[in-house]
């Protein structure tokens, strides 16, 4: 029995050898850069030093986690990460749906093309460039906004030293950068709606607004649910590129802008606190993993077809 099983396994290997060879580069790369680092989670439980390395450093038990939670950093960065992601998701999807519906309803071919190109433009630039644009707007002495305020005879605002503004600014830039991307996605969903449904609504005497509310929007809900699920599953993953480039190492703003990812990065690169940085990273990974499983489980129970896996 045993030998037969082994026998058939090797026969399969021989049978699929070309396919196995073809898939092996990607398998090895993922093994090296995704699975092997998972073993490095032990660093979170160690007092890391370079001589000992990952496996030779002395154990620290849960000390790294204890410091992380007791310092209050854990709560601050978790709250910020989750709240920002909720803000991004809600405002982002709202505007993307609005833009897609309107783009579908009004204007000729050229108008649509031009608007869509304009909306999609910010998607193509790096967060470094966005950081530069933010500076262009918000700088104290040369920023466009302070420029306008000054010319109106109003007081300049020290935006880069005032945490209270940044939640709005960051939500703005995130929404701004991804507006076109989401609009195109929703537009594709609208275009695939069966035109008979529109005709039926028309026959029933629905006006355009009723048609939008009763036909278009309900048909976008599946797309929205998928995107929302992905967003909820990733709620504890901060968009490092944005936070790091728009905020930088500006400690004045950390109370309102520090997310798990920027916190982990600073501990690693600036303070070289490998243990605590790793502990925060493991905390994020586990939290994210549990969230995704929970969300997926809930969706599966509610509607099997809409589950992610």
């Amino acid at each position: 029995m045993m030998t037969e099983k082994r026998h058939s396994f090797w026969r399969d290997v021989a049978k699929y050898r070309t396919l196995l060879i073809m898939i092996s580069p990607a398998v090895l790369l993922v093994l090296l850069f995704s699975y092997i680092p998972m073993a490095g989670i032990v660093i979170a439980f160690k007092q890391f030093n370079y001589t000992g390395g990952v496996f030779g450093s002395p154990w620290a038990g849960f000390d790294n986690f204890k410091f992380f939670f007791q310092s209050g950093d854990a709560w601050r960065v978790t709250r910020n990460t989750a709240l920002y992601n909720i803000g991004f998701m809600v405002l982002g999807n709202l505007l993307q749906i609005a833009a897609a519906v309107l783009l579908f309803e009004v204007g000729g071919k050229w108008f649509r093309k031009i608007i869509q190109s304009a909306l999609f433009l910010p998607y193509f630039i790096s967060w470094v460039v966005v950081g530069s644009i933010a500076y262009n707007f918000f700088s104290y002495d040369v920023g466009a906004i302070n420029n306008v305020l000054a010319s109106l005879g109003m007081e300049r605002i020290d935006i880069y030293n005032t945490p209270a503004y940044w939640p709005y600014i960051l939500v703005f830039f995130h929404t701004w950068k991804l507006l076109g991307y989401g609009t195109v996605m929703y537009l594709a969903a609208i275009t695939s709606i069966d035109t008979e449904m529109y005709e039926a609504a028309e026959m029933d005497g629905a006006n355009v607004f009723q048609r939008i509310m009763k036909v278009t929007i309900p048909n976008l809900i599946p797309t929205f649910i998928i995107l929302a699920l992905l967003a909820v599953g990733n709620i504890f993953r901060g968009d490092f590129g944005m936070f790091y480039n728009v905020i930088g190492n500006n400690g004045m703003l950390f109370s309102a802008t520090d997310v798990i990812d920027t916190f982990v990065f600073r501990l690693l690169m600036n303070t070289n606190d490998f243990g605590m940085s790793s502990a925060a990273g493991v905390y994020q990974s586990v939290l994210g993993f549990v969230t995704i499983l929970a969300v997926n489980y809930a969706v599966r129970k509610y509607d099997k077809d809409r589950a992610l896996f």
């Binding site: 090296l32 850069f33 995704s34 092997i36 680092p37 998972m38 073993a39 490095g40 989670i41 660093i43 979170a44 990952v54 990812d261 982990v264 990065f265 690693l268 490998f274 940085s277 790793s278 990273g281 493991v282 994020q284 990974s285």
Partner: peptide, 10 residues
């Protein structure tokens, strides 16, 4: 994932 630190050290 294992997080940033193990990946970086690797």
């Amino acid at each position: 994932s294992g997080g940033l630190v193990p990946w970086y050290l690797l």
